[in-house]
């Protein structure tokens, strides 16, 4: 005998909304990757404008969670899921923000002299993209090993970040007049690394949702 049918529908809607937001995020990362690669201003504008939609989604999911807690007093796995989602959408929103931030710097770069980006970017973005996709998958399937693997991969991103920083500094020493462009690349480097960090933050909640394991 099933009870609290309304409540269960509400939980399903919540899951659905989070998935919708996740889809938007993975798309945004794809667009950002293309925009950065080809220094495309049109795609960049698209990203900057689209960020509002994702912000709105985050706020709306947050409010939905708050109302759900007040109304239904969830406990046990329901509560773990809702509490985690409130944190997860915050990190997802930051990932989208950073896509938009990178797009802003792509626009800046397009106005100046074209300069070769650090070659680590390609790999960093690949790993970061896979981390975000996997963390979302592990959220859907509650696959703890997958989530833990995402956490481990962050180390590679961090190493690539340091290497990219070194390369940018070397390039600046070689051609100091290109400092404007390289400054943008420094910030883009940082944003990519932060996006990976946010993916890790999301992944850390998966074991908690699945089994209540909360590591301090």
């Amino acid at each position: 005998m099933s009870t609290r049918i309304q409540y269960m529908k509400e939980l399903e809607k919540l899951n659905h909304d989070v998935l919708e937001m996740s889809t938007e995020i993975t798309e945004a990362i794809e667009v950002m990757s293309l925009a950065l690669e080809s220094c495309d201003t049109k795609l960049s504008m698209q990203l900057i404008e689209g960020d509002d939609v994702i912000d709105h989604m985050e706020r709306s999911i947050e409010k939905y969670c708050i109302d759900l807690v007040v109304k239904e007093a969830p406990i046990a796995s329901d509560w773990r899921r809702i509490a985690s989602i409130m944190r997860i959408v915050s990190d997802l929103e930051r990932i989208a923000d950073h896509c938009s931030d990178i797009a802003g710097y792509v626009l800046k770069l397009s106005k100046g002299k074209p300069v070769i980006p650090p070659f680590q970017f390609g790999e960093m973005i690949q790993i970061m993209k896979s981390m975000v996709t996997d963390t979302i998958t592990s959220f859907i399937t509650l696959d703890i090993p997958m989530a833990l693997d995402v956490v481990e991969r962050d180390e590679f991103v961090d190493q690539l970040f340091t290497a990219a920083m070194d390369e940018i500094c070397d390039k600046v020493k070689e051609s100091p007049l290109d400092i404007d462009q390289y400054a943008s690349y420094i910030l883009i480097n940082k944003y990519i690394e932060r996006m990976a960090d946010h993916a890790v933050n999301v992944a850390k909640w998966i074991p908690y949702i699945a089994s209540g394991e909360y590591k301090i």
Binding site: T3, R4, Y7, P74, I75, A76, S77, D78, W79, R80, S211, G212
Partner: peptide, 14 residues
């Protein structure tokens, strides 16, 4: 917050 038995989970979450 994390009941070990499924029946407990089902009862307390209604």
């Amino acid at each position: 917050s994390q009941p070990s038995d499924k029946r407990t989970e089902e009862y307390i979450t209604g």
